[in-house]
Design a protein around this nucleic acid. Structure first.
Lengths: 112, 112
DNA sequence: TGCTTATACCTAACAAAATTAGGTATAAAA
DNA sequence: TTTTATACCTAATTTTGTTAGGTATAAGCA
């Protein structure tokens, strides 16, 4: 059973949501957290994740601090003030979009 | 209140779902149907829709019949046998992906 | 009559975002 | 010592949607 890819366009919002919940996380940790909470059904790939993280930093949504832990580098990301505001909007927009999509996927035109 | 864009990657599945429900529809009708069932919250643009329809025809998922109704051309689309099978898979995959996304958006790591 | 709105199809150029397919490096386990 | 896990990353390509149009008919309004 292969995992679903991330629904396109939702990756940025997923990142923001994870950071809103956790305070700070590093990239690799995000990939594991998503696998875990979705029981391996969703997999965010590192090749999509890292560029998305860098873009959010460029946009002023995230800030980073780097640490070396057990001989390996970790780059922690956290929300900036601007990022916190944006997170609220993005999550609401995505939730609304998901509701619309659910209406279509669950509609039964012949009965409704 | 501007409508949400379609969640990227879901347009194909939306088309298949509409045709599974309705049997046959034409492009313009699909844009109206989506607006109506979602109460104007989702808007599928014709510039995204028509290329997506053509691609599905190329892939053998849809077949078309053209008619002139009230002086205007209508191109009706319906699912092929292959398209019907594919529709089941695509809808299930998208529903699973939405469930995973909902888990993340509704997760409260501090309480869970 | 002329203008606008609704219906109905479409494409080209561009941008955004993810995929494919790698690469580097350390630590731990087999 | 080879593999697995951790941890970062990029380049080229593909997929998909957006922006910004175009064509044409019919109906409604001024």
């Amino acid at each position: 059973m292969e995992p679903n890819p991330v629904i396109k366009g939702s990756l940025t919002t997923i990142i923001l949501k994870l950071l809103e919940e956790s305070g700070r996380m590093y990239g690799y940790e995000m990939t594991r957290a998503v696998r875990e909470v979705t029981k391996n059904k969703m997999d965010i790939t590192e090749a999509a994740l890292y560029p998305a993280l860098h873009k959010l930093v460029d946009e002023g949504m995230l800030e980073t601090t780097s640490e070396v832990v057990e001989g390996r580098m970790r780059k922690y990301y956290s929300l900036t003030k601007k990022g916190k505001k944006e997170t609220v909007f993005k999550i609401n927009a995505l939730k609304e979009a998901l509701e619309s999509l659910n209406i279509i996927l669950n509609s039964n035109l012949s009965n409704g």
